[in-house]
C-alpha cells in the first residue's frame, strides 16, 4: 500500500486519511453538511487501524450518493449498477476468498432496488461486511421518498407526508441471517469506527447501519437546516447495545444505537462437498 501523505496540498496540510484517498479526484460530489464524509472516514480509519485487513480489502458500491464513496479510495474498488453491489461482491468473495470484501452503499440501493440480494446474502451467510449509510431519502435523484423514510415525513414524492412504514434494518438483517448487526449515526464517529473495526475482525455476513444527515433534501423537506439535522440525530440517539433488533425501530422520538447481534455461523463459500 502506497503512502503519499499530504504531497498534493501546496501548503503541506492534508487530511490524515489522504494516504487512502485518490485526492486528485477531490472535491467529492457530496453537498455541504452531508454525513457521508464522516461515515467514509470511519471506514477508512478502521482500515488504517488494521493494515493486514486493509491490504486485501476490496470496496464495492452501488448507485447513489453513498455508492460514489468507494471510487474516492485508493483501494481496489467497484462502482456497480443500482442495487447489485451485494451480488457483485459475492462473486468477488467466492472467486477469491483471500479478499476482505466490503459493500458500502445507501439505503435505497441496498434495501429497495437491491433488497432481495441483501436478504439472500444474509441467509447464505456470504463472508461480507455490508455498511448501509441511511439518510432516510433518495439524495442523488433529488429527494424522493425511500423505504427508510419515516411515516409522515415529507419528500418530493410525499408532499402530504409519507403514507408507508419504514424498514427496521437491523431486524431485517437479523431475520435474514446476519451474524453481526449494529447501528450508529454520523454523530458517533468513535463508536462507528470501533464497530467497523470489530466487524472487520469477524467472519460471515456482517451488517452496520450508519444514519447520516442529508440537510440538502431530507432536512429541506422536513424543516431542518444542517444544525437541525445534526441535533435531530444527536438528541434522539439512545444507547441500546445488546437489544433485540426487533426492539430497535427508528421512531420520531428515538434512534436506538449500538451492537445488537454477535453470532458465529459458518460462512458460505460456494464449494459443493463430495458425495458421501
Amino acid at each position: 500500500m502506497s503512502i503519499r501523505l499530504y504531497d498534493e496540498w501546496p501548503d503541506g496540510i492534508g487530511h490524515p486519511l489522504d494516504s487512502l484517498l485518490r485526492t486528485e479526484q477531490l472535491p467529492h460530489v457530496w453537498c455541504v453538511g452531508c454525513g457521508l464524509g464522516t461515515a467514509t472516514a470511519c471506514l477508512l480509519g478502521a482500515l488504517e487501524e488494521l493494515p493486514a485487513v486493509r491490504d486485501h480489502a476490496v470496496l464495492v458500491g452501488g448507485i447513489g450518493c453513498t455508492g460514489r464513496a468507494v471510487g474516492y479510495t485508493k483501494l481496489d474498488n467497484f462502482h456497480t449498477t443500482h442495487g447489485r453491489a451485494i451480488p457483485f461482491a459475492t462473486g468477488l468473495k467466492l472467486a477469491d476468498p483471500s479478499l476482505n470484501v466490503i459493500v458500502f452503499s445507501g439505503d435505497g440501493d441496498l434495501f429497495s432496488i437491491g433488497g432481495n440480494h441483501f436478504i439472500h446474502a444474509a441467509r447464505r451467510n456470504v463472508d461480507l461486511l455490508v455498511i448501509c449509510c441511511n439518510n432516510f431519502i433518495y439524495g442523488m435523484t433529488g429527494g424522493q421518498v425511500a423505504c427508510t423514510t419515516l411515516p409522515g415525513d415529507h419528500s418530493t414524492t410525499t408532499p402530504m407526508g409519507n403514507l408507508e412504514d419504514a424498514f427496521n434494518l437491523p431486524a431485517l438483517a437479523e431475520a435474514a441471517g446476519a451474524t453481526y448487526v449494529a447501528r450508529w449515526t454520523s454523530l458517533h464517529p468513535v463508536q462507528t469506527q470501533r464497530t467497523i473495526r470489530e466487524a472487520l475482525g469477524r467472519k460471515g455476513f456482517r451488517f452496520i447501519e450508519i444514519l447520516v444527515q442529508c440537510p440538502t433534501y431530507y432536512g429541506k423537506y422536513n424543516d431542518m437546516d444542517l444544525r437541525g439535522m445534526v441535533m435531530y440525530l444527536k438528541n434522539r440517539a439512545a444507547m441500546a447495545e445488546g437489544s433485540a433488533p426487533a426492539a430497535v425501530p427508528i421512531t420520531k422520538d428515538r434512534i436506538p444505537v449500538g451492537v445488537f447481534v454477535r453470532l458465529e455461523r459458518r460462512p458460505f463459500d460456494g464449494r459443493i462437498p463430495p458425495a458421501s
Binding site: 464495492v60 456497480t80 457483485f88 459475492t90 468477488l92 472467486a95
Partner: peptide, 8 residues
Amino acid sequence: AMVLGASA
C-alpha cells in the same frame, strides 16, 4: 452481477 464480480 456475481459472474462479473468473479471475473474481476
